[in-house]
Simulated scan of single mutants.
Amino acid sequence: MKTLIALLLWLLLAAWSLPLALLALLLWPLVWLLALPFRLLAAILTLPLRLLGAGR
């Protein structure tokens, strides 16, 4: 479902401004790579809580 929403938002942006949509399409992998260490850090920090059952 998230993929469909992302696609629809990108198509809306492409209809509004194609160069901006293409720039977003080219920069998205870079943004994902920059956010990856923070996602890994969050997973490591929340791992003890999940193991202790605090998420239930």
Rank of each mutant, 00 (worst) to 15 (best):
L23R: 11
W32I: 13
L20N: 02
G55N: 15
L27I: 06
L20H: 08
W10G: 04
L52G: 06
L18I: 04
F38M: 13
W16M: 08
L34W: 09
L20S: 06
W32D: 13
L27E: 00
L13G: 04
L36I: 08
L41Y: 01
G53Q: 08
A42S: 13
A54K: 02
L26R: 06
V31I: 12
L23P: 04
L26P: 00
T46M: 04
L34R: 08
A6L: 08
A24L: 11
W28T: 11
L4F: 10
P37E: 11
L9A: 11
W28D: 02
W28F: 13
A43Q: 15
V31P: 00
T46D: 02
A21C: 10
L23A: 13
A21S: 11
A21N: 14
R56D: 01
W28P: 02
L45Q: 14
P19S: 08
M1W: 10
L27F: 02
L34N: 02
L20Y: 03
A35Q: 14
L36G: 03
A24F: 01
P19A: 10
G53Y: 01
A14F: 12
L26K: 07
W10F: 12
A14N: 01
G53C: 02
M1D: 09
R56S: 09
L40K: 14
A21Y: 07
A43N: 13
L18Y: 08
L18S: 05
L12V: 09
M1P: 09
P29I: 02
R39P: 10
G53R: 07
R39Q: 15
L45V: 05
A24V: 03
L26A: 14
I44R: 08
G55R: 08
L8W: 10
L26F: 11
L8D: 06
G55I: 01
L11K: 03
L30Y: 04
L40A: 09
R39T: 15
A42G: 08
A24Y: 00
R50G: 03
L9K: 06
W28I: 08
A15L: 10
L9E: 06
W32L: 15
A43R: 15
I44D: 01
L51Q: 10
A54C: 05
L30R: 05
L18N: 07
M1R: 06
W28H: 05
L52M: 03
L45T: 05
L4Q: 07
L23V: 12
I5N: 14
G55Y: 01
W10V: 04
L45F: 15
S17F: 00
L25C: 11
L47W: 09
L25V: 05
V31L: 14
A42Y: 05
